[in-house]
């Protein structure tokens, strides 16, 4: 973007980077595919759906904030294990995680998503959008489920998912970066590694362009999450301060 040619990187280096990122992803993916298969994708029973729907709004918000925060902690570990991330200055590590960790959670959601039933793994079982009615954010929930479904349609391998997650995390256009060029180099290398792996996997079906379009969809989902949180806080200011996870408040509470 600033006229710099993309870094010349050898195939061996791209394979190594892909391996590192993929290894970190598998170590920090929170739910192994095997685990989920054992759970044979068990859906919520109707009475369980109704019990979520009858929760007070602030209780359901708190439960979801806890689940999101748990998932985000795995994303922090994912970032830490990728060569180069810990070499960034602390300011930029914080900036990238603050802006990108929820985006990576949304990307990872497709791993625990059952497209057949439009359900996602939540709180021990698979829940559909109707289980989240108590939040009062039906439009956002629908968009999040639609995003997960669209990601499933790409049939990415774990390695491809890992590389796309890293590409999104190392977004060099985040505000407040101090060493933007260094982040830009990391993002370019990750992009080259993703391109390399997609070619290796004979994914010529324009999947890289489709993934690029997903980047703006992720920004939109995160912006809408922030808007919904602000609207919720306007009504329940104390609940967030006293009952939400400290990390969630630190990331989204501004």
């Amino acid at each position: 973007s600033n006229g710099e040619t993309s870094p010349t990187v050898s195939m061996a280096e791209l394979d190594h980077l892909a391996h590192i990122i993929s290894k970190s992803h598998l170590e920090t993916c929170q739910h192994l595919r095997e685990e989920l298969q054992q759970m044979n994708w068990q859906n919520l029973l109707q009475d369980e759906v109704e019990s979520y729907q009858s929760k007070p709004r602030e209780v359901m918000w708190q439960l979801c904030a806890v689940k999101i925060t748990e998932a985000i902690q795995y994303v922090v570990e994912f970032a830490k294990r990728i060569d180069g991330f810990m070499d960034l200055c602390q300011n930029d590590q914080i900036v990238l995680l603050k802006a990108g960790s929820l985006e990576v959670v949304f990307i990872r959601m497709c791993r625990v998503f059952d497209s057949q039933n439009n359900t996602v793994y939540f709180d021990g079982k698979f829940a559909g959008p109707d289980a989240f009615k108590a939040l009062g954010c039906d439009d956002l929930i629908t968009s999040v489920f639609d995003f997960a479904k669209s990601m499933c349609l790409l049939h990415l391998t774990e390695e491809e998912l890992a590389l796309f997650s890293a590409f999104v995390l190392f977004s060099a256009d985040r505000s407040w970066l101090q060493e933007k060029l260094q982040v830009e180099k990391m993002q370019q290398r990750t992009h080259l590694a993703l391109q390399h792996i997609l070619q290796k996997n004979q994914r010529e079906d324009g999947v890289l362009n489709k993934l690029r379009c997903k980047v703006s969809a992720l920004r939109s989902l995160c912006n809408r999450h922030t808007e919904k949180l602000s609207a919720f806080r306007a009504i329940y200011p104390d609940v967030i301060r006293t009952h939400f996870p400290p990390l969630y408040k630190e990331l989204f509470g501004a």
């Binding site: 170590e27 920090t28 929170q30 902690q73 795995y74 922090v76 570990e77 830490k80 810990m86 602390q90 590590q93 914080i94 995680l97 603050k98 400290p246 990390l247 630190e250 990331l251």
Partner: peptide
């Protein structure tokens, strides 16, 4: 640092895959 105390802590401490 003050504003992102928890993120700083998470970045500092080493967590093994087992802990995760």
């Amino acid at each position: 640092k003050e504003k992102h105390k928890i993120l700083h802590q998470l970045l500092q401490n080493s967590t093994s895959p087992v802990d995760l």
